[in-house]
Design a binder for these strands. Structure first.
Lengths: 120, 120
DNA sequence: TCTATCGTTGACATGGATGTCAAGGTCCAG
DNA sequence: CTGGACCTTGACATCCATGTCAACGATAGA
């Protein structure tokens, strides 16, 4: 599929898909005329990128993380330098802290909302 | 306490504390000489701001969220316009989505790490 | 064939969180 | 009373994820 369709399917803009590509997060092939040609699996990949971005990871980290989330994983063992493993581990710790912070504050807001609505 | 000490305690920079203030997130009093004067409770507040920022919320939202997390909450009922309640509700939904996304991807990375280490 | 729609690249703009620097005021310790 | 450490404000710089626009090529339908 072409960039416009992928943009529609993933609710992004063509501009961003090109940006992700320049950051090395996706690598579409090209049609004879130079148009980018995405295959169906890229839809999920883009959604995952969006999710991780929204979760606060920068593209630089996402680039390291993505290969590990691909299936099958064994293909990517060769890439696993100790530095990357360290990066991944500390990144999971940051993610855990984020999860806790988000959960705690979300629950506090929810409780606030429920109290306010009880009074209304 | 003054800005330098608060910065040390919260591991931020004075620059950022002034920025948060300009965004309306903290309101320190002033000493006679014009120096900002923070009381101890501001430490937790700043940490909470940092956590929410790190979790991906923009200062604009944090500003709406913070009053609801204060204790005692009843003081802030007057602020609770329907629009703010709507904002809060949709924001908790975004937070929930983030939490799921973060959890899913973190667990995938953790599993990858454990598989890689098993082989090492 | 003309036109609308989509694609390409590249440049420039913007908004948000931060750093840095300048010019000056305050305060304490020697 | 002087030097250094800290504070003030304000301006400018930076990084990153995005938007927007210009100039141009490709394609498909009236």
């Amino acid at each position: 599929m072409r960039i416009g369709e992928l943009a529609r399917l993933t609710e992004t803009s063509p501009r961003l898909l090109r940006y992700y590509e320049k950051q090395g997060l996706i690598l579409p092939s090209r049609e004879a005329n130079g148009y980018r040609d995405y295959d169906d699996s890229q839809v999920d990949r883009v959604l995952q990128i969006r999710g991780l971005l929204d979760a606060g990871l920068p593209t630089r980290i996402i680039k390291q993380v993505l290969p590990c989330l691909d299936a099958p994983r064994r293909i990517h063992f060769a890439d696993a330098t100790p530095e990357i493993l360290d990066t991944l581990e500390s990144e999971t710790e940051r993610m855990t802290r984020r999860i806790h912070c988000l959960t705690r504050n979300r629950d506090a807001i929810l409780e606030y909302l429920s109290v306010v609505r009880e009074l209304a």
